[in-house]
Nucleic acid binder design. Structure first.
Lengths: 236, 236
DNA sequence: AGAAAAAGATTGGTATGACCATCATACTTC
DNA sequence: GAAGTATGATGGTCATACCAATCTTTTTCT
């Protein structure tokens, strides 16, 4: 049969060209790209097309444009993907429940994986965070530490996809419910549930017991779920 | 303290304006946006800025530009998010193992959720797919049906996030290992493992037994994992 | 000599205007 | 009525100009 005639737009081709250089390793984190005028000359296209390509790469977080300096490959991407996700989520009528559901799944599994792969050095870091949490004297602080603990657990799975996806989902949650984390932490403050639960999680991860770690994380989320059940704001 | 002075770029503001209209429901799937020249006039900015905003929304899959027709809110998004993911994955030195790991997690949980939520109508669809798989007489066909089954299971969780993320991850897998699915299917062809496993999965989902469904899916992936273990191509 | 200030060069950000390519529509023409 | 044709709308690309922020070099002052 005939092959479909390709009619790719210039800016798209330019974008792909840059992506290729990234995928091939030619461009690395933090690298500076050639100046726009230079690139336009090199690829023999207008600066307009170069810029349209850069814009598309910018919004997905791959590059950063700094006026007067240049275009750079981003160093920081933990929160990449939020923009598209939140829009798609809205357009497809996603429910808040969906966010919680997948977050629970991933956090529970992450706890299990981290328990299997934990190192001495990392055990110490987690324990320090736990101590900080117990000694925290403001809710803002507790929220920050709570977030750190969960982030570290995800990071210690050694699976970059889990980290990226969980970050995206967390951002998505915040996007839909402002200060969601703070509200949850407030509710759990009663009876020191927050501290107890996290002590449980950290201890079981440190013990290296996968199933115990998953169970502890599950219980934590069960509590979270109970604590927000009555809050109409989370209803969606 | 002083508030940070906002210095947002025009194209970014335009992009946000459009996003707002989407989030507020003013723009819906398939809707046509005003013409670029018209929007430029309305927002009192140059067409350049409008276009840069549109480009960024286009690459993340939110809108579609059709020359001679106009710009539209996309109808189809299942594969959205791949572009950014694959680049980030590469830049962060992600391993192929990471892809399999999170895919297994999500597919297994998806099977469980679907088992809980299955309806009569959907049972029939799954059973038909199973029959098709058994009667398929080419590997290309088997690959396609295999893919359909997994997609349907994800879809039937009723959780749009699970669908979107699994689609992204699957695409990511294909991106790194061309014809990954075909190679896996080929290996499983021996002893009719593919059919047996899928029969197991579908049957247990239809029975509504969550744990059985998860177990069946887990066994399937254990087999997949075994079948590719010796293949150096999947090493990283 | 050293620091501060000024000037110049580089680079991204925005605006215009022009022209091309594609598609939808209305209008002949037969 | 059907086919072909012109017209207009719309996105795609380009060239140029100028603004704004940053970096680099030079000058100036103490």
């Amino acid at each position: 049969m005939f092959e479909p005639i390709k009619n790719k737009k210039i800016h798209q081709q330019v974008s792909e060209e840059i992506q290729k250089m990234i995928l091939s390793g030619e461009l690395k984190l933090g690298d500076k790209l050639p100046a726009e005028r230079k690139m336009a000359e090199m690829l023999n296209v207008s600066r307009t097309s170069i810029r349209e390509a850069l814009r598309s790469l910018e919004i997905i977080g791959i590059i950063e444009s700094r006026q007067g300096e240049g275009n750079f490959i981003s160093e920081n991407f933990d929160q990449v993907g939020l923009e598209p996700m939140s829009l798609i989520f809205t357009l497809k009528n996603g429910k808040f429940k969906d966010i919680l559901e997948i977050r629970n799944i991933l956090e529970i599994e992450a706890a299990g994986l981290t328990a299997e792969r934990i190192t001495e050095e990392r055990k110490e870091i987690l324990e320090n965070l736990l101590t900080d949490l117990i000694n925290a004297d403001s809710e803002a602080e507790r929220v920050a530490i709570d977030k750190s603990i969960h982030y570290k657990i995800a990071e210690y799975t050694n699976n970059i996809l889990i980290v990226t996806i969980l970050e995206t989902i967390s951002s998505l949650m915040i996007y839909f419910i402002k200060d969601a984390r703070l509200k949850i932490v407030k509710n759990l403050k009663v009876d020191n549930l927050l501290e107890d639960m996290h002590r449980n999680i950290v201890k079981s991860i440190i013990s290296g017991n996968k199933e115990k770690a998953k169970q502890a994380m599950k219980e934590h989320f069960d509590n979270v779920y109970l604590s927000i059940q009555d809050n109409e704001e989370f209803d969606n």
